[in-house]
Amino acid sequence: MEGDTALRAVTPGDASAFRAHLEAQELALDTIGWRIKMAKCLFAAAVDFGHIVINPFEKVRAGSKSTNDRFVDVEPQIIDAIIEDVSCLEWKAIITLWRYGGLRAQEPLHLKWNDVDWANRRLTVQDVKRKRQRTIPLWPKVEEALSVLFASAEEGATRIITKYKPGQKLGTQFVRIIRQAGFEVWGKPIQNLRASCQNDLEKAGHRITAVCNWIGNSPTVASKHYLQVTDEDFEQALGASNRGQQSVRQSVQYRTERSRTGSLEDFTNSECTTIPDHAGGCVDPKTIEYPLKDSNLCF
């Protein structure tokens, strides 16, 4: 399509060709999906205003937005080192709430001290995305971070995080904190902390219903965007079998090395030592005479 193509001149074939053009540029699937969705919205509005009759992008697949290919399991030892390195108590609490509380990027900024139920060890989170509240356990590391911050809070303070106001972006500063601690920045730094938290809760054996309630998403969203197979899953799955199969692998490796380094005669003789005495030892198959049968009548 040319830059001055009229809306009514765009056909469904042109729309399909546009998606193929985006794919040929090797753009990320999220980028392709976003551009197709924007085109759908544009032409849908044109239909509503009567400029065109049909939406040529109606049947063009936008593709669902998925973050699976950018999931990073941020291990506790890494995030603990980052928390230890940062000097600001509020940032310590923010990062802890992301990684060990599963909060969204903006949710720590909405917390108030009366949201903390110290007696029952629970924390009420203002779910700004779904516009409702959810209650999560006051997990040990979250409780510790909030306790330290509470001890240093000004008397009469209501908000837990006072350094930033709700709506302020935290991503850029968090990237600086990661680099300052000596680590490389992983993809989607904040979201992957939340995803790692949900993975940990599932691996700990909590019911998916409870985990999704604490994190604030649905099982469908969790399985699509958050719950991932990690290296630890493979290690646990192979743990028992590794011990049982170790001797088998060693035996195969030994036989392979013998076949590579030893002579054919040595290898054959070594095999003969396993034949019982009554078997008569190794026999050259060329010297064996077989009785004449219907199956070997050819001379």
Score class of each variant (00 low, 15 high):
Q173T: 14
F174I: 01
V175K: 04
R176L: 10
I177A: 04
I178H: 02
I178N: 00
I178L: 03
I178C: 03
R179M: 14
Q180M: 14
Q180H: 12
A181M: 02
G182Y: 04
F183N: 04
F183L: 03
V185H: 03
W186R: 02
G187I: 05
I190T: 02
N192Q: 03
N192Y: 01
R194D: 00
R194C: 00
A195E: 06
S196Y: 00
S196F: 00
C197Q: 04
C197P: 03
C197L: 08
Q198V: 15
Q198Y: 08
D200G: 09
D200E: 13
D200A: 14
D200C: 07
L201M: 09
E202C: 13
E202M: 15
E202D: 12
K203D: 08
K203P: 02
A204H: 10
A204F: 07
G205A: 04
H206S: 08
H206F: 15
R207Y: 10
I208F: 06
I208A: 09
T209A: 13
T209Y: 10
A210F: 10
C212Y: 04
N213P: 03
W214S: 04
W214L: 10
G216H: 02
G216Y: 02
S218M: 05
P219I: 00
P219R: 01
T220F: 10
T220S: 15
A222R: 01
K224R: 15
H225W: 12
H225E: 15
H225M: 06
H225G: 08
Y226G: 03
Q228F: 11
Q228T: 09
Q228V: 07
T230L: 06
E232P: 03
E232N: 06
D233T: 06
D233H: 15
E235T: 11
Q236H: 12
A237K: 05
L238N: 11
G239L: 06
A240Y: 09
A240G: 05
A240L: 12
N242D: 11
N242S: 13
R243I: 14
G244W: 00
G244K: 07
G244F: 05
G244I: 02
Q245D: 15
Q246G: 05
V248A: 09
R249N: 14
Q250D: 13
S251G: 08
V252A: 06
Q253T: 10
Q253S: 13
Q253W: 06
Y254K: 15
Y254Q: 15
R255S: 05
T256V: 09
T256I: 08
E257Y: 05
E257L: 06
E257R: 11
R258I: 10
R258F: 12
R258A: 12
R258N: 11
R258S: 13
R260M: 05
